[in-house]
Design a binder for these strands. Structure first.
Lengths: 184, 184
DNA sequence: TTGCGCATGTAACCAGTTACATGATTTC
DNA sequence: GAAATCATGTAACTGGTTACATGCGCAA
């Protein structure tokens, strides 16, 4: 059964990890324990229900067991890989500010998307960030003088944060370009 | 009735805003619509229930009505101001990464906390950020060479983000210091 | 007089959290 | 054989989301 409605982000994170390499629920939990993937809790109460949803959606299946291991490992199905790809290519919408979903996507894109797709993802992201940065800077130049100290500094924090995200996005673009050229 | 258990962040945001200036639910909603305070939705389904909680906790009361306005305005009570202060002084715990709660606190601290309290808040924040940055950089120097391109860049994003937050925190410290000296 | 902005809410839903339960297997 | 860790889950709760309902006052 291929579900039509959008899964929550955590489920896509699991799908992305499993797509890289088949894994059991426990192994996935461990990954969330050590890496700050999206900032989700590594508690079983988060992982297992999400995993179940992905399973019910038909996006993962039991691994072809050559090497029997303790703990059922899961691998992606074809519909699963299609759903993952569809999620990965779609640009992050809304005010970005919180880059965490964008970074999650970016992480899993490497093996799944073409260079062109990844490039355009970053381009769209860059444009969005630049635009948001603009609007914050406009507020700063117009109203900074009549703002309280702490308000002004909060605004500054937002600006610096966006600037750093933008710097990253541009760096990422040059890096993936370089890597792409090298491969040819 | 003074509630003992911790309110959700949104409620504190409302309390902080009302403490600055008495406001009605609708006015608060408008504020959330234009300013990205903590990134909460400005929907009535978020604001009004949260406001109700703050009211039930005994932290706000109907404004002393000199100027009757349409829409009931709320002002903080003494317990409300105490609860707000207690929340504002407490350093943000856990992995910070998401600065939004810290920034929310910082914003409301100006009129409520002393210079020493605000200074120490920023000092603690700085220490935390520096420590997290260290651990990420350690990972980078140790494992960057054996990481996939996108993974390495994701890590880089985390590092750059923390670096920018740290830069901000240090800037904020010098700024509040300067403002404090000026006032003496 | 009709439609828009003010103003306040509720209902259904959703995803994630904490805390608990349980059994198997490994390690000391 | 006791303790730790592997491994998978459920239950109760929480806080926020979207969408809807409603009435009032004002302006075109």
């Amino acid at each position: 059964m291929v579900s039509s409605k959008r899964l929550p982000t955590l489920s896509y994170a699991l799908l992305g990890l499993i797509n890289r390499q088949p894994a059991s629920g426990y192994e996935l939990m461990q990954i969330f324990k050590v890496t700050p993937l999206g900032g989700y809790s590594s508690s079983p109460g988060a992982i297992y229900p999400a995993l179940k949803k992905v399973r019910i959606a038909g996006f993962i299946e039991p691994e072809d067991q050559e090497v029997p291991s303790r703990g059922q490992r899961w691998q992606t199905t074809l519909p699963g890989r299609e759903a993952l790809t569809a999620w990965l290519v779609k640009p992050v919408e809304g005010d970005v500010m919180d880059l965490s979903e964008a970074m999650l996507k970016f992480t899993f894109q490497e093996e799944v998307l073409s260079f062109d797709e990844r490039y355009s993802f970053l381009k769209v992201l860059t444009a969005r960030l630049a635009q948001q940065l603009d609007s914050l800077q406009a507020i700063e130049t117009r109203h900074a003088d009549q703002m309280r100290l702490h308000d002004r500094l909060s605004l500054k924090a937002g600006i610096m944060d966006l600037q750093s995200s933008l710097d990253w996005a541009r760096l990422a673009i040059t890096e993936i370009k370089a890597a792409h050229k090298e491969k040819i």
